[in-house]
Amino acid sequence: MSDVEISRTESLTRQQAARLLSALADALSADGKVEVELGSSTLKLHVPDNIQCEVEVEVDGDEVELEVELTWSTASAATVNSAAAVQPAVAKPVRPRAGKAGSARS
């Protein structure tokens, strides 16, 4: 289980989604200090120089889901580098989805 998880789902126009992704990209490429707006609150994150990125596309009937997941460790760089050297990358199989009623991912 996660120590902390914050989730928000909202409907956006394609242009609003583009602005959101562009703002995230600008923050990542600048100094790695990323601010994510969650309603009336702002979540501030420091993203290190090296991260893991997973892109997943799922088509389920007439619904398409594009998921971009960025993952990084808050452990020291030496710990992360030694762990990465021991654990090889493994491809993750696409998992079938149960019914979509009530589920939303952001």
Rank of each mutant, 00 (worst) to 15 (best):
Leu12Cys: 02
Thr13Met: 02
Gln15Cys: 06
Ala18Thr: 14
Ala18Gly: 07
Ala18Ser: 09
Arg19Pro: 01
Leu20Glu: 09
Leu21Gln: 04
Leu21Asp: 03
Leu21Gly: 04
Ser22Arg: 12
Ser22Asp: 08
Asp26Val: 05
Ala30Gly: 06
Ala30Ile: 12
Asp31Lys: 11
Gly32Asp: 03
Lys33Met: 07
Val34Gln: 03
Glu35Lys: 14
Glu37Tyr: 10
Leu38His: 10
Leu38Trp: 08
Leu38Thr: 10
Gly39Ala: 03
Gly39Tyr: 03
Ser41Trp: 00
Thr42Tyr: 06
Thr42Cys: 13
Lys44Phe: 00
Leu45Phe: 03
Pro48Asn: 02
Pro48His: 01
Pro48Ala: 02
Asp49Glu: 04
Asn50Gln: 15
Ile51Cys: 02
Ile51His: 06
Gln52Trp: 11
Cys53Val: 15
Cys53Glu: 15
Glu54Trp: 04
Val55Lys: 09
Glu56Tyr: 02
Val57Ala: 11
Val59Met: 10
Val59Tyr: 01
Asp60Gly: 07
Asp60Pro: 08
Asp62Glu: 14
Asp62Asn: 11
Glu63Arg: 15
Glu65Leu: 08
Glu65Ala: 05
Leu66Arg: 14
Val68Pro: 02
Val68Gly: 01
Leu70Met: 00
Trp72Tyr: 09
Ser73Met: 01
Thr74Lys: 11
Thr74Met: 08
Ala75Ile: 02
Ser76Tyr: 00
Ser76Thr: 00
Thr79Cys: 09
Val80His: 04
Val80Pro: 04
Asn81His: 14
Asn81Ile: 08
Asn81Arg: 15
Ser82Ile: 14
Ala84Gln: 15
Ala84Asn: 14
Val86Glu: 07
Gln87Arg: 15
Gln87Leu: 15
Ala89Thr: 07
Val90Cys: 13
Ala91Cys: 14
Lys92Leu: 13
Lys92Gln: 13
Val94Ile: 09
Arg95Phe: 05
Arg95Gly: 06
Pro96His: 14
Pro96Ser: 12
Arg97Thr: 00
Arg97Glu: 00
Gly99Ile: 11
Gly99Cys: 08
Gly99Val: 10
Ser103Cys: 09
